[in-house]
Each structure stands twice: as structure tokens, then as C-alpha cells.
Amino acid sequence: MARFLIRRLLWLIPVMFVVAAITFILMHAAPGGPFDKDPQQRQVDAITQKRLNAQFGLDKEMWLDFPALMQGNVVGFFDTQFFTYMIGGTVNGEWRCGFICGNMGPSFRQRGMTVQQIVLDPPEGKSPWDSKAGYSLRLGLLALIFAVVVGIPMGVISALRQNTAVDYASLFIATSGVTVPSFVMGIFLIIIFAVWFHLIPVVPRDWSDPTVWILPAVVLGFGLLAQTARLTRASMLEVMRQDYIRTARAKGLSNRMVIVRHMLKNAMIPVVTIMGPALAALVTGSFIIETMFGFPGWGRQFVLAISQRDYSMILATTLVFALLIQIANITVDLVYTFLDPRMKVS
């Protein structure tokens, strides 16, 4: 177990570097740069552009600086954009430590701010939970809890009552969960709950009021809820037909014990598998939901960063996401052994 953990944790490093390298290639291959403005706007002039490139280290070599190596400057060989971001390098005459020091770099777009300040620093005088990352994390967890708490019982019940009205109702809910895009569901729920019934404001002014979190969490969690419910139902049906369930029942175990001990545990493998990455995806936020509800989270930052080519924000978010995904997957592998002790994690 310990060996497994250590090995997997060590694997984090090469994976992160590969992810960073791919992202780096992609974002520089995308046309335009961070100082290009919306097409309707006046663009930055050439002089300022050059100056900004220098200030942000965009005038350096991308990967490896061969001319510097020719001059025998080994440090200079690695003093390039990629390694400056990942490990460290000189920018605008100053040495700066990179991502390995937990430094996410200066934002190219929200000038003057570092990526940490944007996503991790809460507004003045508030707790870290009120930072953008904190908001996304909270919303993601709420959505996940919603999906699990509603989805799993829904799946279990519809498996136990297969082909009854309950089953079809849950199928209907699940199908609408995946087929209605969040940008559609969001606006309809807003109209129903805010405009018709006046239960919540359309645009939450105050996110410290818990009631305004419900709608975005529901919209965010609905897709996962649908999948969870359907997967739970399918695996339950699968498990119910296995011989050992018949044996368990034959032994006279109570119906409830059979369901919880034997069926549910075995049926959870596919659910847990999708849950890991889903959690990572949920807590890094959702562009559409954040835009629609005016939610100050991280997800919007990321999508904006891509369209604005805010290189450090893109890299930072991707790397954090990669880290979360891997930790989630390690956890999933560990949970497998708990659910089915015969499964060996290699």
C-alpha cells in the first residue's frame, strides 16, 4: 500500500511536466497573444507591445536557448519561457522562482496581479473560502453532494423497482439532466424561482446567503446526478443477478443487509470511477454556470484566460487541474480495494 502510494505520487511529476509541455505548445500555437484585444477595440501599438513582451518575458526563447549555450552559458540555455514558468528564470531583470515553488506567475491580462492573487487571495478582510478557488471548491462540493445524495438512492430504488413508474420517472429526470444543457437549465430555473416565485434574486448580490447557492449547485450537479443514477441502477441490476446475492438471500439475510452490504458495495465501482475526475472538474468550476449566475469562481477565469491568451493563468489552472485529477484517480484506485478486496492495485 505504502509502496503503491509513493510510486503513484512520484508519477505526478513527469505527468505534470508532460501536461505543462502540451499546454505550452497548444497555447503558443493558438493565434494571437495576451495583448490582443477584443476585435472591436483599438489594439496595442507596436512599441508598447514590444515593451510588454519584455516585461512578461515573452521575448525569451520558448524551450531551449541554443545561442546562449553556444556562448557557454548553461544557465542561459534553460532560461527560456517554459523553464522560467516551471522552474524559474529571469524576467525583466529579476530572478523569479517558478511553479515548483508554488508560484503561478503574473497574469498577462489582469495586469499587476499574479495568478495567486486572482484565484487564491480572498477580497479584503474575508476568509480564504471567499477566494475564487474557495468559491469554486464550495460550489463543486455542494454539486457533488447533491449528485450523490440524490443520484445513488435514485439509482438503487429504480433498480429495485425495475420497469415501474418510479423507474421511468427517474429515467426521465436523468435524461433531462444530460440532455438539457446547463445554459438552458440555468435560465429556466432562474425564470421559475426568481422571476415567478421570487424565492431568490436573479443576480445574487450577496453570496454569504446560502440560499443563493442552491440553484447554481443544482445546475452544476445535475449532469453528474443523472450519470450516477443511471450507473448505479445498471450496476445494481447486474449485481442482483449474481449468484452470491441469491446465496445471501438464501442464507436469510435481511433485504436491507443484502442491499447495503452486498449489492451497493459491488455496484459502486463504476460510480466511484466517474466520481473522481468529476470532482476535479466540478471544483475547478464551470464557465457557463459562473457566467450565468455571476458567480465569482475559478472556472470563468480559466475560459476567459484561454480566449484572452492569458498564458500564466492557463498554465496554472491546467496544472492545478492535472494535480487534482491525479489525486482523485489515486483515491479512486484506493477505494476500489475497499469496495472489492480482491481487486489488486498494481
Binding site: 435560465i187 434574486p201 455571476g294
Partner: peptide
């Protein structure tokens, strides 16, 4: 100032006397 970019949402909020 508020910062809602989705015009359909802003319109609903206006009708709701929020803007």
C-alpha cells in the same frame, strides 16, 4: 456596478427590479 455578461439574465434581473 454589477458584472453580468449574459444579457438574458440581466434582462430578467431588470424585470425583477434588481437593476
Amino acid at each position: 456596478y454589477a458584472y453580468i455578461t449574459d444579457s438574458a439574465v440581466a434582462f430578467q434581473a431588470y424585470k425583477n427590479n434588481e437593476f
